[in-house]
Amino acid sequence: MAEATDPRPAFRVASPTATRELVLFIAIVVVGAGFSLASPYFLTVGNLVQTLRAALELAIVSAGMTLVIIMGGIDVSVGGIMAVSAILIGKSYQAGLSSWVVAPIGLLSGAALGAWNGFLTTKLRVPPIIATLGSMYIFSAIMFLVIGGAWISGLPGTLSPLVNGWVVGIPASLLVILAVYGIGWVLLRQLPYGRHLHAVGCDERSAGLVGINVDRTKIAAYSILGLLAGFAALLYVARLRNVEINIGTTVALEAIAATILGGTSIRGGFGSLLGTLLGVVFIRIIQNGLVLIGVSSLWETVIIGGLLITVLTADAWRNRNNPRIA
């Protein structure tokens, strides 16, 4: 047991992702400033609130995705989970059920589909990328089979105050996002489960050796993500009053992008919900800004891809002294 004359500098920063969060925040401010100069509509309350509402579903799903990635997994099927949940929600509304019944249905269906992914990756030992890829196919198939190419439309907007409403001058959407991220933060930092998530993401084998139920930790993480996807589906229906055929097509990749931009390590073991939230804001601001200045929205994907590559390169450069598993 060596003395404190260890020449290697200790990691003193309280939160290793603080740098990334700061950088993202500055980037948001800079980009926001740029857009507000380029377009008079950008900095208006109306526009910002509109952007917030559009970011709602992505923000909620990204919170869950952060948990799963910290745990060392990944889930590209969340769009499909959203879609199937939305269909169940739509059909339930059409059957005349009240929101009190429909909401739990949406949440539980999401959680169940998430648990399915968890099952595949633990009990059947399918690597997460393959398992969730396969699940995505299966969920898409279910969606097509149930609604074909048509939409489910004319759904009640009973829950839309959650999206469109205001509480004491604050947009309800903002409160919902803060609530979800607040609970997520508590889970991650203040509850034992959060420690278990980090441990499994760090080194699954060691976590098992010290007595953590690795399978249960993983299944729980995927289920939480599914639950949040179900919640996002509820809010989607509340906002659009429809279930459209393209629901959830981009949410998985955008959620992963937001999470990685926000500083969560793709290898698992550490991450930041605040960073993810900033990542979501950043992505949505760019999308909104581009539309306002007349640049085709098709450039978004290029920009997000470029950002991801930059961020990943920066991470890699930062880790260049660490011996890696070859």
């Binding site: 441990a199 760090c202 010290v210 953590i212």
Partner: peptide, 15 residues
């Protein structure tokens, strides 16, 4: 069997 990216206290009390 230590979790590298966690603190001393985290590791001692893991589980």
């Amino acid at each position: 069997a230590l979790a590298g990216k966690m603190t001393v206290a985290d590791n001692i009390f893991l589980g």
